[in-house]
Design a protein around this nucleic acid. Structure first.
Lengths: 222, 222
DNA sequence: AAACAGCTAGACGCATGGGTCTAGTTTGAC
DNA sequence: GTCAAACTAGACCCATGCGTCTAGCTGTTT
């Protein structure tokens, strides 16, 4: 056998590893879709990348469109788990609020800038017109729950007197926007690897602005 | 002749209108690329949409890839002109600053939510990996000049004592982020038409947060 | 041992679509 | 009127790629 796919090389041995053909195919599909785009990607290439015969791909996923959906769904679940883990850190009540927010912001940015995250967003943008339901998959499984969870934490911090948000959901959206918006140009839509200190600078600036707007204030006449 | 393309119908008469075959093709290409995606779009379809023979398309644009580049470049120029016009309104020094910013924000959002803008961003995301130079075309011609122009206006407003920005470029990026970030979900990547009062609400919230962070302050100890 | 389910390699049919070419028509310039 | 350039309709070549199928291999179960 001349060559095995990169996913197979990274993952289980492939020949001996009995089970995870399915997962190997999902990983390979993401890699190939991200590299060549969904339309340009060939099922042959996906199979080769997974170290698997083409028929096996069609056994697990009826057709190409279904493979796309499953790939995006699996990736959304993974992204959701990572983001929820980060947002959960806001439950720590002891730390200094600014430091805490900067830490959470930095971690969120690292998730946002992960190759997989960029691949997911690019795939979604590219195929949203052809397959509008992809957006429901991604937002329902990943984006919306994260924003809601963040809004929950901001509301708790407001009740605790450490923040001042009238509309926690809007505040959560703006916090995310301040983080991710400035990243889009710097990351060149995911084609440039942003160094960590640049991430830190963006997170710091975002938290600065956010706290100026939403830090707890004793009173205010408006 | 059974049917003429939608672009020809919208634009010049097509048969009698001598010149703008080229522009008709560019318009048609954008329409078709936006509707079906670059890879799925057929040159036959573009030609038909433009009300033009396929050979004519190849006369004006050597091949499909070149057509994509020209389409994106032309669209970027158009988007740039619209955005610069909006940002230019910040030169009015008389008006109330909050009203002025909200007005500019609203107009920027209208540009951001135009079908063409969404089509441009989706095309860019989809093909950025295949054609990395597309990003230079768009950012160089549209995105970067707009941010710079906005930063210029914010700097002038700071010098005039109406704002307090230490880093006008970062402030400009954050202003745009506060506007566009919350729109992405609401517009469902351009597949949903956002009503005008929703745009107004987002602009209002963005300006609220922005002014809390960057309104002119007499002094500050930190 | 025997039946079975999943996998492999590779050939194959068939549709799609980029790009070319031909032959005939229209348009504008001189 | 005449000529060149651009345009049209449509056939055409050829590469790509989805999805199927066959034939044979491997590991598991009973």
């Amino acid at each position: 056998m001349g060559e095995a796919g990169a996913a197979a090389r990274r993952g289980q041995v492939g020949a001996r590893g009995r089970i995870d053909k399915r997962q190997a195919i999902l990983d390979a599909a993401l890699t190939v879709f991200a590299r060549e785009g969904y339309a340009q990607a060939g099922m042959d290439v996906v199979a080769a990348e997974a170290g698997v015969a083409k028929a096996t791909v069609y056994n697990h996923f009826h057709d190409k469109e279904n493979l796309l959906r499953q790939t995006i769904a699996a990736l959304s679940d993974q992204v959701l788990a990572e983001n929820l883990g980060v947002v959960g850190r806001l439950a720590d009540q002891g730390e200094d609020l600014r430091d805490l927010l900067e830490d959470v912001g930095l971690r969120l940015l690292r998730c946002y800038c992960a190759d997989q995250s960029w691949a997911l967003r690019r795939l979604l943008s590219a195929e949203i017109v052809q397959f509008p339901d992809l957006l429901d998959i991604v937002h329902g499984r990943a984006a919306d729950p994260v924003t809601e969870a963040l809004a929950d934490r901001l509301a708790r911090l407001t009740v605790a007197g450490r923040l001042s948000t009238r509309d926690p959901l809007m505040a959560a959206e703006q916090f995310c926007s301040l983080l991710t918006g400035p990243m889009d140009k710097r990351a060149r839509l995911g084609t440039r690897q942003v160094p960590d200190d640049e991430l830190r600078a963006v997170a710091r600036a975002a938290v600065d602005t956010f706290l100026q707007a939403f830090a707890a204030k004793p009173a205010r006449n408006g």
